[in-house]
Amino acid sequence: MSVPKKKYFDILLVEDNPADVRLTMEALEELEEEKRLFVAKDGEEAIDFVKGEGEFVGASRPDLILLDLNLPKKNGLEVLEELKSDPEFKRIPVVVLTTSGAERDIMATFNLHANSYIQKPVEYDNFLEAMATLRIYWFQTSRLPPK
């Protein structure tokens, strides 16, 4: 018996920079699979969204989280630590998508069980290429855990 193919993916983008939100949305528009993209503008909103609390009661649990590190209220490392220490949410794949290329940030995210780390390319075309690679890996090659 085969499992029916999922009709869409829920992606939570945790990003406070409106220009980066627009760029990421544009880059993910070409996702061949249907997707629903939700945006949290700070770390506290991200936690509320994933847990379905506050203004996000009834929100769909994301299949994948794209997480910036430099966030207001609760930074990306704090968000990552909280999610990965909770048995209910630790299997949600988290891709850190940040401008930082610092080795200490890379080590810290993997120590907190991030699933991937992508340094945001500065050049527009390079950013689109990085997002295309992300799409291919997470939505065509890899199998995401069930909700």
Rank of each mutant, 00 (worst) to 15 (best):
L144G: 01
D48Q: 12
R61F: 01
T109N: 01
H113N: 11
L64C: 07
R143Q: 08
E123Y: 06
R104E: 14
V14E: 02
E82I: 06
A27F: 14
P87F: 08
H113S: 11
V3K: 14
V39I: 15
G101W: 01
A102S: 12
D86N: 14
Y117Q: 09
T109V: 10
P146A: 11
K35W: 09
N115A: 05
E53L: 12
P146T: 15
A46W: 00
A27C: 14
G43R: 00
W138H: 05
D63W: 02
E55C: 01
D20K: 07
D125N: 13
H113A: 11
Q119I: 10
A27E: 14
D48V: 01
H113Q: 13
L128K: 12
P4F: 06
Q140W: 01
L69R: 08
P87Y: 03
M25D: 10
M107K: 08
L144H: 03
E32G: 15
E44D: 10
Q119T: 14
M107R: 13
D63Q: 04
V21M: 12
P121R: 08
V50M: 12
L112G: 07
F56Q: 06
A102V: 02
L83E: 10
E88K: 15
P146K: 15
S85I: 02
V94Y: 08
E53K: 14
G52N: 08
F56P: 03
P145F: 11
I47W: 13
A102W: 06
E44Q: 10
L37D: 05
M25Q: 15
P62N: 09
S2W: 07
P146N: 13
L83M: 09
E78K: 12
T98G: 00
E45S: 12
L37K: 04
L77G: 04
K51T: 00
S60R: 15
H113P: 03
E15R: 07
V96H: 04
E34V: 11
E55N: 03
G58R: 05
F110Y: 15
N70T: 03
D68G: 09
G54D: 05
L128C: 08
F110R: 05
D20V: 01
S142V: 03
F110L: 09
I118G: 06
L64G: 06
F49R: 00
T133C: 06
I92M: 03
D16H: 11
R104Y: 11
A132G: 14
K7G: 14
S100V: 05
R91W: 10
D42V: 11
N17G: 06
P121T: 13
P62K: 02
A132I: 07
E129Y: 12
G52I: 07
T99S: 13
I11T: 05
K74S: 00
M25Y: 01
